[in-house]
């Protein structure tokens, strides 16, 4: 049974994107809800203050898609679910880390409802798909009534669960450039294999001097470790790369793990990636 007093909550249900953006212009700060897998948990546990929601489910005709872009990249609509992403051959072939990340998230019931865009906007540093998206240099199309802007995912977060998304904006689309890596790696380490929130996530890719490392659960936001990337590109050994990583991230203690354990696991994942990586 739900623990919240629902009288403190309202919900509007726009039928089109245009209507949704108009509502947001008139009432900035409406809380968007898509698959509900984050919001409803908090609501059930009475962890949310009273607010007005905006349910986006009727925008599916406009915003639920995953399709190849003309440049060989990938376009993911705001209402595309994890399941939508998992079973497309062109995604498995060109952006396989997304498929692995989607599969590592929750159970089928969650994957059927949860959206990739929700994972981004929710802003958890433990998000499973955000490291993969960051490795692919994803850009985000943010829309508001009468305008839009494109923001690189690596510049989207400004702090713990904080982002540049304005109260009248919605994340409309995730834009991925073509990916052409020789080696790609994704590993989520949690308490157990299924349905656990991560202690450390590493998504990584390499082609020659182009080395990319994106981490979950080791900082206030998902982060790229660019100095470590440069060290590896410059020929660092695994020991030297771990040294660079230790200088670049300072994981914290929290309910799921300790900073020291996270640092140890992060180095192990980095070594595993480097051992397996062909340049």
């Amino acid at each position: 049974m739900i623990a919240s007093d629902l009288s403190a909550f309202e919900c509007v249900v726009p039928a089109t994107v245009e209507e949704a953006l108009r509502q947001r212009a008139e009432t900035p700060g409406l809380s968007p809800i898509a698959g509900g897998t984050e919001v409803m948990v908090l609501l059930n546990e009475a962890k949310l203050q009273g607010r007005k929601f905006q349910s986006l489910h009727r925008l599916a005709a406009e915003w639920r898609y995953v399709r190849p872009a003309l440049d060989g990249g990938l376009l993911v609509g705001a209402l595309a679910t994890y399941t939508d992403l998992r079973h497309l051959d062109h995604v498995s072939k060109h952006h396989p880390l997304l498929v692995e990340a989607a599969r590592a998230t929750g159970a089928l019931q969650i994957q059927n409802r949860a959206t990739i865009a929700g994972n981004i906007v929710n802003g958890s540093p433990a998000a499973d798909t955000v490291p993969a998206l960051m490795v692919y240099d994803a850009r985000l199309r943010l829309v508001r009534s009468g305008g839009e802007r494109i923001v690189p995912l690596s510049e989207f977060y400004t702090g713990y669960r904080k982002s540049v998304l304005a109260p009248d904006e919605l994340l409309a689309e995730i834009i991925l450039p073509p990916a052409d890596f020789i080696s790609q790696y994704y590993r989520k380490v949690g308490t157990r294999a299924a349905q656990a929130i991560s202690k450390v996530v590493l998504a990584a890719a390499r082609r020659g001097p182009d080395v990319r490392l994106a981490w979950g659960s080791v900082a206030a936001t998902t982060v790229r470790t660019r100095r470590t990337e440069q060290a590896i590109a410059g020929g660092a050994t695994a020991d030297e790369a771990c040294e660079a990583l230790r200088a670049e991230i300072k994981p914290l203690d929290d309910i799921r793990s300790t900073g020291a354990y996270r640092m140890g696991v992060a180095c192990n994942l980095l070594r595993e990636f480097m051992v397996g990586a062909t340049t």
Binding site: G35, G36, M40, S55, H57, L108, Q109, N112
Partner: peptide, 15 residues
Amino acid sequence: GELAMSCMIPACQAA
């Protein structure tokens, strides 16, 4: 047509 957990579906989305 999709398996989902009904504790996480707001009623408005079942319309």
